[in-house]
Design a binder for these strands. Structure first.
Length: 450
DNA sequence: TCTGGGGTCCTTCCACCT
DNA sequence: TCTGAGGTGGAAGGACCC
C-alpha cells in the first residue's frame, strides 16, 4: 500500500486529499510514522523527529495514528491476497509476499501481470486505496520491484534481467542494508550492487560477519531462495513507553515498570502465550539503551511473576540522570505455563490485571476531557453529524464536518465539554451497496476501535 | 535536530559441561 | 590431574524492518 496511514487518512477526510498529511506521535518526542507524498516533497519522511517535520512542513495536517482502522483495512487487503494464493506472508499492516505459483497462476509474464493488475483493481474497489505490485522470481526482487512501482504502479522483473537491473543500484537498495552496513561498505569503497558482487563472498564475510556476508553476497548475485511462509510464530511480546519528560524519581521508575509488566502480560495472555525470559529495557537521558534479562525455570503468564522479575532486573540498573524510555518484554514463548509445577510465585496466583485499567502515559498528563479529542479521530455532533478533530487545546476542540463520501466540509469550534459532541467510530472508506460481500462488511468500521 | 513502538535476527562474551 | 576443544544456553548489545 502506498504511504498507507497517510492515504487512509486522506481517504477518510476529503479536505486532506492532495494535501501534505503527516501521521505519527504528536508529543514532544514523537516521530513520523508515515508522510503523504505531498508531504515528502518538503523532505519529510518516516522516522523523522516530528519537531523537524513541523519545521519543514509547518502547514501540513498532523494526525495521530488510528491503528484499529488501519488494521481493519489491512484485513480486507490480506483477504484479497489470500484469494490469489494460500501462501501469503504478511510483512506488516500494509505489505505482504504472495506465492502466485502456489495459487495456480501460470508461470508466464502475461498471467503474472494480469493477476497483479486485477489485484490492484480489487484493492481499489474494496478499500478505495491504491496499492503497488512488484512481480519477480524471488522475495528480494519482488520487494525491490514493488518499491520501484510506488506509488500506484506495477513493476515486473523479467527472469534473466535481474543482475543487469540490480548491478548499478546503490547497496542500500538491498533489504538488510541499513545505515550502519551502508556506511561500513562505503568505507570499504563499495557503493553499488555490482561492487558488492565484485568484492567476493570472503571479503563480505570479513567485513560484515558470517550470516550477513553470505546473505548479502547471494543477494548481490540476485540469488534468493527463501520461500513464502504463511504462518510465522511469535517469538517475543513487549511493550515500551517513551516519556515526554525524563523520569528521575526512582519510585516513579519502579511504578512505571510495574505498569508496563502488567500491560505486557495482558498482551501475552491476549495471544494465549506464556514465556520464560523477562526482559527489561531502559533508555537513559543520553539515549544510551541497555537491557537486562532473566530466564525463569518455566514459562509464565502470571502478572505477579513478571512484575517481580522486572523489579529485580531494575535493581541492577543505574537510573540517575533520568530515563526517557522503559520497556518490558517476554521471550522464550510457549503456549502453556509451568506455574503449577514450579510455583514461581509464593502465595496465591492473583489476577490483579483486570481490576486496574490503565491509561497510556502520554495521555496520563492530560485531563479526562482533553484526552477524548486526539487530532484526526472521528466524532459525532448531535446537530452537525459526523466529523473529525482538527485540533484541540485551551478548552476548545475544532472539528471539520465531513465523511469519506462527502465534499470537503466546514470547520466549527466547540468547548471540549460540549455535551452534543462525542467520539465516534470511523466510517467505511468505500460506501457499501446493498448485498455487498461479507468481507467488506467485516472489514469496515464495525471492527475498528474507538 | 534529537531521535516511536513492536518486532526479528545476528554477534559476542561468558559460564558450564563433556 | 591438567588442559584444551567444542557445544550449548543465557545475557547483552546492535542492526534492521515497517
Amino acid at each position: 500500500m502506498d504511504a498507507f496511514f497517510a492515504t487512509v487518512e486522506q481517504a477518510s477526510k476529503p479536505s486532506l486529499r492532495g494535501k501534505a498529511v503527516i501521521v505519527g506521535g504528536l508529543g514532544p518526542r514523537g516521530v513520523v510514522a508515515t508522510a503523504s507524498y505531498e508531504a515528502r516533497v518538503f523532505g519529510v519522511h518516516s522516522a523523522m523527529p516530528m519537531a523537524q517535520a513541523r519545521r519543514l512542513a509547518p502547514n501540513a495536517a498532523y494526525l495521530v495514528p488510528r491503528f484499529a482502522l488501519y488494521r481493519s483495512i489491512s484485513e480486507q487487503v490480506m483477504g484479497l491476497l489470500r484469494d490469489l494464493s494460500p501462501l501469503v506472508e504478511p510483512l506488516s499492516l500494509d505489505e505482504a509476499f504472495v506465492d502466485l505459483e502456489a495459487g495456480g497462476t501460470a508461470w508466464d509474464e502475461r498471467s503474472a501481470r494480469l493477476a497483479g493488475a486485477k489485484l490492484r483493481a480489487d484493492i481499489r474497489a474494496v478499500t478505495g486505496l491504491t496499492g503497488s505490485v512488484g512481480l519477480a522470481a524471488s522475495k528480494m526482487l519482488a520487494k525491490i520491484a514493488s518499491e520501484q512501482a510506488k506509488p500506484d504502479g506495477l513493476v515486473l522483473i523479467e527472469p534473466g534481467t535481474e543482475r543487469a537491473l540490480l548491478g548499478p543500484l546503490p547497496v542500500r537498495t538491498l533489504p538488510g542494508v541499513g545505515p550502519a552496513t551502508g556506511d561500513h561498505l562505503r568505507r570499504a569503497g563499495i557503493h553499488t550492487v555490482d561492487e558488492l558482487a565484485e568484492a567476493g563472498e570472503d571479503e563480505l564475510v570479513r567485513l560484515l560477519g558470517r550470516a550477513h556476508g553470505h546473505a548479502l553476497y547471494a543477494m548481490a548475485l540476485a540469488r534468493d531462495e527463501r520461500p513464502v511462509v504463511a504462518e510465522r510464530e511469535t517469538k517475543s511480546v513487549s511493550v515500551e513507553d517513551t516519556y515526554d519528560v525524563d523520569i528521575h524519581d526512582r519510585v516513579r521508575v519502579g511504578a512505571e515498570v510495574q505498569r508496563l509488566a502488567d500491560r505486557c502480560v495482558r498482551r501475552l495472555r491476549g495471544a494465549g502465550l506464556s514465556g520464560r525470559t523477562i526482559v527489561l529495557k531502559v533508555r537513559r537521558y543520553d539515549f544510551s539503551t541497555l537491557t537486562r534479562s532473566e530466564t525463569l525455570r518455566g514459562p509464565t503468564d502470571d502478572p505477579a511473576v513478571v512484575r517481580e522479575a522486572a523489579a529485580r532486573l531494575l535493581e541492577s540498573v543505574d537510573t540517575t540522570g533520568g530515563v526517557r524510555l522503559l520497556g518490558v518484554g517476554v521471550s522464550g514463548l510457549a503456549d502453556y505455563t509451568q506455574e503449577d509445577l514450579f510455583a514461581q510465585a509464593a502465595g496465591a496466583r492473583e489476577d490483579a490485571l483486570d481490576e486496574e485499567p490503565e491509561a497510556a502515559p502520554a495521555e496520563e498528563r492530560q485531563t479526562a476531557t482533553e484526552r477524548r479529542w486526539p487530532a484526526g479521530h472521528d466524532v459525532r455532533h448531535a446537530a452537525y453529524g459526523h466529523g473529525w478533530v482538527q485540533g484541540s487545546g485551551l478548552g476548545r476542540v475544532t472539528v471539520r464536518f465531513e465523511t469519506p463520501g462527502s465534499e470537503p466540509g466546514r470547520v466549527r469550534t466547540f468547548r471540549i465539554d460540549d455535551p452534543d459532541l462525542e467520539p465516534a467510530e470511523p466510517l467505511p472508506l468505500v460506501a457499501r451497496r446493498p448485498g455487498e460481500s461479507e468481507r467488506a462488511e467485516a472489514g469496515g468500521a464495525g471492527s475498528a476501535g474507538p
